[in-house]
């Protein structure tokens, strides 16, 4: 993504608006390699405007109601991939059970775009600064991915391979995000931006007090988010919170190898990963 759009128009394509998943998957199979799926469409439209992609077919998922639902099942909380950022923020269930995601949703573009941006679209663009993915990783969520051949379950941590590259095949669609349904979940998401709308660093934290489980993900600093859990952070549930936070921040600082780009240098991103980690943990444990 170059963020550079000299063009006002889009290349030619044929637009489909299937009514259900099966129809969408059928179209994807039929036009494999020549079709692109449209969720919110922000990234898709921009990539077409940038003349980076030239799909012959655009398959819009906005008419598929079953992708817009949030359900609680025995598998956990199932979030349809077409649930919008606004809906995530407004959902009582998400706020209570997936606080890191609810917070991350409030950063997915500006408030107007959040009516359009979907969680599935947000994570499948594969940009380092994607807000949804660190949150989903901190919640150890799993993605339900479907194609006309069937479905598979993909840990959210395995979705992104590199900048703009995901492990989704050309005929696959993310249909659901499945999050463990736990009680007493705490979490947050912090995004550090300055002099650019592209994040310098992001941190998502999810803590299950009862399970004594903590997971933290650092995004925007490298092509893929970093993932840390209790053990890698050397978290000691019996020890003092202050020491834990200090130690966890140091672990993150030493572990990450950020990239340098026009937004920030590697050195600065490394330092900010530490500060942001501590701030996120302070926020979560401060409120406990």
């Amino acid at each position: 993504m170059s963020f550079t759009t000299p063009y006002f128009t889009l290349p030619k394509f044929v637009y489909f608006k299937p009514k259900n998943i099966e129809e969408a998957l059928g179209m994807l199979k039929q036009h494999k390699g020549r079709a692109k799926v449209m969720a919110g469409g922000i990234m898709l439209v921009n990539l077409m405007k940038e003349r980076q992609i030239f799909p012959e077919y655009v398959i819009d998922l906005k008419n598929i109601d079953e992708l817009k639902k949030i359900n609680v099942t025995e598998n956990g909380i199932e979030i349809g991939s077409m649930v919008t950022a606004i809906e995530l923020q407004n959902s009582k269930l998400i706020k209570e059970k997936c606080p890191a995601l609810a917070k991350a949703a409030s950063f997915m573009g500006d408030r107007t775009l959040q009516h359009t941006v979907t969680i599935g679209g947000n994570i499948s663009v594969g940009m380092p600064s994607t807000d949804g993915l660190p949150a989903l990783m901190s919640m150890d969520s799993v993605l339900e991915v479907r194609s006309s051949e069937g479905k598979r379950f993909l840990p959210s941590s395995e979705l992104v391979l590199g900048i703009g590259r995901t492990s989704l095949k050309e005929d696959e669609i993310i249909t659901k995000i499945i999050v463990p349904n736990d009680e007493k979940v705490m979490g947050t998401y912090l995004k550090f931006i300055n002099a650019s709308e592209v994040a310098i660093a992001t941190v998502a934290v999810t803590v299950h007090h009862e399970k004594k489980k903590l997971a933290l993900s650092v995004g925007a600093i490298a092509p893929r988010p970093y993932y840390f859990d209790n053990s890698s952070l050397q978290w000691n549930w019996e020890g003092s919170v202050a020491e834990n936070i200090k130690r966890a921040s140091d672990v993150v600082y030493k572990a990450v190898q950020p990239m340098s780009d026009a937004v920030a240098s590697a050195e600065y991103r490394k330092e900010m990963s530490k500060i942001l980690t501590a701030r996120a943990l302070k926020e979560v444990f401060g409120g406990a």
Binding site: T5, I42, V45, N46, T112, T116
Partner: peptide
């Protein structure tokens, strides 16, 4: 490209960026 918001319209009552 969806950055400035000047093309915002209400589409069935919801604000959307019409350039996107």
């Amino acid at each position: 490209r969806g950055e400035c918001g000047l093309c915002t319209v209400l589409l069935d009552g919801i604000p959307v960026k019409s350039c996107m």
